[in-house]
Each structure stands twice: as C-alpha cells, then as structure tokens.
C-alpha cells in the first residue's frame, strides 16, 4: 500500500521535475499547520495565506489539531497530490524521518516553520524558518539594561511553563543580557504558565512579597502574562510603564494597546510571518536552484512607544491573534 503510494509519488515527482520550468509561474504549496491552540498560531495561518497571495502562490492548509499522525497524513497527501513544496510546523521534534524520506524521494522540498526537528533528520528538509528564542530574551534584556542605565533595579520575571523550551531559552537569553550589569538584580522568578490569569496571580504575590515600590522592572516570557501582571500592578495602586518598567515577548495586539496607554514599555516580536521567508527560499530554490542556509532566522524586533503602537495594533488586530 505504502509502496504503491510512494511509486506514484515518485512518478508525479519526476513529471513535476521534468515540467518544472513551466510550473514555476504558479507554485502550489502544502502547509501542515499544528492547529489553532493560540492566537499567535491563528495569526501565523492568516499571515501565511496573505503572504502566499502576495506571491501568487496557491497554499493548501491542513490543520493537524495537535496530532503528529494528522501531520504525517497531511504530508503524505501533499506528496500524492504532487505539490511543489511543503511547509511543516512540526508538533513534536521526533518521528519525521519516514515521511520526510517519502517527500524527498518524490523530490518535494520541505521547509520547517517555527520549530526545528531533531538532528537525525537534518538532511531531510530544505531549511527551517524559526525565530531564535534565546535572541528574543537577549533583546529584551539589552533593552532593559539600556533603559535603566546605571541605577540599581530589582527585576521580577514571569516565566513560561516550566520545562517548555521556549521558556528556558527566553530565560537564558535574558539572563545572559543582564549578567554584565551588576545594577540589575533578578529578585523573583516564578512560572505564570504563559496565561493571563496566572500572570496576574503571580504578579500579585510578587508585589506582596517584595513590596510594590521595591520592584523596578517586570520581564515576562510572553505578552499575555504581562497583560495580567499590568492589571495586578494597577489594582495594587502602582503605575506600570511609569513606576515599573515592563518588557515582554511575542508582540500580540493587546500589548500594543497597553504600550499606547503608557502602561507597558516594550515587547519583542515573535513574527507570525514565518511563511514569507519560506516562500522566498522555496521560489529561489525552484527557479534558480539556490540552496538556502539550513536555518533562516526571523528578526526579533523590539517595539516600544516610539513605534506608533496604535498603528501596529490596528495592523495586527485582524490577524486572528
């Protein structure tokens, strides 16, 4: 059964390779998306559609609902349909070898989005477009060090879910960035599980434990927790953004509202536009045979009140965050 599928795929692949030039004008790309478990994920899907349209690419999106077997099925079906390329946002890091080999045998390039897979499969995909979460933490830390200057500053940290690699990396980058600055002291660090409610609850406890006015800055691993923390600070009679500096990561629309209102200071963008660079790489590869680097890193852009937050809010609002 599987053999016959891959033979068929081979045939289709060969035909495509043969008629490659003629097809190049309009590419068809399959996109195996994890699901829509977060606003960011929804925005990624929306942006992918928009970026494809911009380039005249037909994109077929398969929602895997958080299941690897669904993703594998989707890839097989893309291979069978003979698409020109496959975008994969892998739900887990392992277990892709077999299906990626099928795609390779069919000469269909696969580009990973947003997350990497384990090393043994490195030669099985064209490139991975991901952000560098260590870099995100570093950008946040540098901004804070620069903004605070030389005066002493007690920082509290709202971590993501314990054990999540994004949380570990964002902490690592931030710690590294503030390490050279002896005046920045990380006094409290707790997990807020990436949620608003927990972010608020944890911030409340920080305020009680340290005394609100002893805290000089808050760093949150994502904007949602920061939105909760801002509420906690306001309810405690503090002025976030003025008395207490805030910096968080993701750049979801709601944080721009807070920045515009002067209640938050900075956010580092985890861009939902992973597909744009992926499409460009794919086009270059298909049309000119340019082999892209193994890792295309997206920009970790810092936004502050100086970046017209309301305008950014408006532009991001409709993306499905």
């Amino acid at each position: 059964m599987r053999e016959s599928v891959s033979i068929k795929a081979l045939l289709v692949g060969a035909m495509l390779a043969w008629g490659g030039a003629a097809q190049a004008a309009s590419l068809t790309v399959g996109f195996s998306q994890i699901g829509s478990e977060s606003g960011w994920r929804a925005a990624e899907t929306t942006v992918t559609k928009a970026e494809a349209k911009k380039r005249g690419i037909t994109v077929k999106i398969a929602d895997a609902q958080q299941k690897q077997e669904n993703q594998i099925k989707a890839i097989r079906s893309f291979v069978a349909q003979g698409v020109d390329g496959i975008l994969l946002a892998p739900v887990v890091a392992t277990g892709w070898d077999a299906v990626l080999k099928e795609a390779r045998d069919a000469k269909i390039p696969v580009i990973l989005l947003d997350r990497d897979i384990d090393p043994s499969g490195k030669d099985l995909y064209l490139t991975a477009v991901t952000s560098d979460s260590v870099e995100e933490g570093r950008v946040a830390g540098h901004w804070l060090a620069k903004t605070v200057g030389e005066k002493p500053c007690n920082v509290v940290e709202l971590q993501g879910t314990v054990g999540a690699s994004v949380a570990t990396n964002r902490k690592k980058g931030f710690d590294a960035a503030i390490a050279p600055h002896a005046n920045l002291k990380l006094v409290r660090s707790q997990t807020g599980d990436f949620t608003r409610a927990k972010g608020k609850e944890v911030m409340e406890s920080f305020i009680k434990a340290e005394g609100g006015h002893a805290i000089c800055a808050v760093y949150a691993h994502n904007d949602d927790m920061m939105v909760g923390a801002i509420q906690a600070m306001k309810e405690a009679g503090l002025k976030p953004g003025k008395e207490i500096l805030t910096v968080s990561i993701d750049a979801v629309p709601d944080i721009f509202k807070a920045i515009a209102a002067g209640e938050a200071n900075a956010t580092v963008e985890l861009t939902p536009d992973m597909a744009g660079p992926a499409f460009d790489a794919l086009k270059a590869y298909k049309e000119k045979g340019t082999v892209p680097p193994k890792w295309i890193q997206t920009e970790s852009k810092l936004y502050t009140a100086a970046d017209e937050p309301l305008k950014v809010y408006e532009s991001k609002k409709g993306l499905g965050y």
Binding site: E37, F194, T195, R196, A197, K200, V227, Q231
Partner: peptide, 16 residues
C-alpha cells in the same frame, strides 16, 4: 469571575 478578573476570556486556559 475568572473572565472578569483578567478582563477577557481565554478559552485555552480558563479553568484549565
């Protein structure tokens, strides 16, 4: 109460 607390409804995490 949970929604009123964070001024929003977080379907993924509320009451998890």
């Amino acid at each position: 109460v949970a929604a009123a607390d964070i001024l929003g409804a977080d379907a993924n995490n509320a009451g998890l």
